[in-house]
């Protein structure tokens, strides 16, 4: 097993863990951390699977990852800005949290 494949496998596991965390948590900040972990996993897969070129990593894959990181930063920033305004407006930043829903059994 090459080290590149190791990155790809680690990335695949990170994606699955991030996805689980994103679905299990309700607080927006936690969800955003989970989203960024998922994103990191995808970048590892992208780099690990990129066609090899001797000892140097594929420059196109590196450029795609840089672009992807900036896009993830922009998305995180937007979500945080929206969450802050929601908090100011008196809303619950725990989306779909049981305490903010009336149709949940666990509330009793």
């Amino acid at each position: 097993m090459t080290s590149a494949l190791g990155y790809a496998i680690a990335g695949a596991l990170l994606v699955a863990m991030g996805l689980a965390a994103m679905l299990l948590h309700h607080h927006l900040v936690r969800r955003l951390i989970a989203f960024n972990i998922m994103g990191g996993g995808v970048f590892l897969v992208l780099l690990g699977l990129a066609p090899g070129h001797g000892e140097q990593a594929d420059p196109v894959a590196q450029a795609l990852i840089l672009t992807g990181i900036v896009v993830a930063v922009a998305a995180t920033g937007l979500a945080l800005a929206l969450a802050r305004r929601l908090h100011q407006a008196g809303g619950d930043v725990r989306l779909d949290h049981p305490s903010s829903r009336e149709d949940d059994d666990d509330q009793k």
Partner: peptide, 27 residues
């Protein structure tokens, strides 16, 4: 704001899935 954030969370999962597909196709 709540609707926009809920949409954004769903859409970000969707984007990540799409990007992972792109990574696999590129590989």
């Amino acid at each position: 704001l709540t609707a926009a954030l809920r949409y954004l969370m769903v859409a970000l999962i969707a984007s990540t899935a799409f990007l992972l597909g792109v990574a696999l196709l590129y590989g």
